[in-house]
């Protein structure tokens, strides 16, 4: 693979990037830098602008405003040249249903101008890589969701891209399929491929991303590694208390001063603290007897919900 030559090893650079559809602003002026070799995540609820951003980076959606440079090139002018070096795994599989599994890869390679013989070799390697070699001659339709997704990932690799864009790579997959996809993506990362992915799964972001931005309402609300985001926006530990009775609300007042932040949910109370066990001891010391107590490490999910709220977004 040819190493991309760009300033400071930055492959994707966005400044004040905006995407509007009519009156609706999907992406509202974001700044992003993605460096060569890293796994970069866009994290956010539905409608946060993740997919719109990905489509702009994929050079299939012209930015409304702002600057976007990909591998030192301008998507508006150099779309085909940039796309030649991108691999794209879209949110919804758009595999070719009239072709077999193998043909989906060889045909796709031809769109990049890859010679037939090379295309066949790569298809064979990639089918091994995503564990679909036995299904090579099968049509796409009977494949499971996980298999289709793996095939889409293989297809995204067929041009040996410098950057792979993955829009919600494991949404809708069962746990086994998700872990297999993660493992394959991790191996790509080890091979030096730059991964850019969107997700609303925190575990996915924690597993795969070196660095991520949290998006909400078209804007970036936080940026950093999973670890630093947890440190900055949450506490080290979280205590989950469930009290028997009508509402949790009634007990909330009695927990004053126990935690840096208290969140009252319909079914439980969350205490954001540095020392979980200490806080639990304190709860008991106040003669409170919750029906259940759980002390856990703070996760990206806590950060995410803190930053983007608990309101349902459709």
């Amino acid at each position: 693979m040819v190493e991309p030559v760009t300033r400071d090893g930055i492959l994707i650079q966005a400044r004040g990037l905006v995407k509007r559809f009519g009156d609706f602003t999907a992406v509202d002026g974001i700044d992003v830098d993605v460096r060569a070799g890293e796994a970069f995540g866009f994290l956010g609820p539905n409608g946060a602008g993740k997919s719109s951003t990905m489509r702009m980076v994929g050079c299939v959606s012209p930015p409304t405003d702002g600057e976007l440079q990909i591998m030192g090139m301008d998507p508006r002018r150099d779309g085909p040249a940039i796309r030649a070096r991108l691999g794209v795994c879209p949110q919804l599989d758009n595999l070719d249903p009239e072709l077999t599994v193998r043909e989906n890869l060889t045909t796709y390679a031809r769109y990049f101008g890859i010679p037939r013989r090379v295309a066949r070799e790569r298809a064979a390697e990639l089918l091994d890589f995503v564990q679909l070699a036995e299904r090579a001659g099968s049509k796409v339709e009977p494949l499971s969701g996980g298999m289709k997704r793996r095939l889409t990932i293989a297809r995204a690799m067929v041009n040996e891209p410098d950057i792979v864009l993955l829009d919600e790579p494991t949404t809708g997959l069962d746990p086994q399929a998700r872990h297999l996809v993660w493992e394959r993506l991790f191996r790509l990362k080890q091979q030096g491929v730059t991964l850019v992915l969107t997700t609303h799964y925190m575990d996915e972001a924690e597993q795969l991303c070196d660095r991520l931005v949290v998006m909400d309402g078209g804007r970036i609300v936080a940026e950093g590694s999973p670890r630093t985001l947890i440190e900055r926006y949450s506490t080290r530990e979280v205590v989950e208390l469930r009290f028997a009775g009508e509402t949790q609300e009634a007990f909330a007042g009695k927990l004053d001063g126990l935690a840096e932040r208290i969140e009252v949910l319909p079914d439980r109370i969350l205490l954001y603290v540095t020392d979980g066990d200490g806080a639990v001891a304190e709860v008991h010391a106040r003669a409170l007897t919750p029906a259940s107590v759980l002390v856990r490490r703070s996760s990206l999910e806590d950060v995410f919900l803190h930053l983007t709220g608990r309101t349902l977004v459709d």
Binding site: P4, V5, A81, T107, R110
Partner: peptide, 25 residues
């Protein structure tokens, strides 16, 4: 530099080639 210039040449060379790949499908 080579890697930036090269793909440009490759991808602008071939509107007919790319159209043919669509027919080939």
């Amino acid at each position: 530099m080579v890697s930036i210039v090269l793909p440009r040449l490759i991808s602008f060379e071939g509107a007919p080639r790319r159209a043919a790949s669509v027919a080939e499908r």
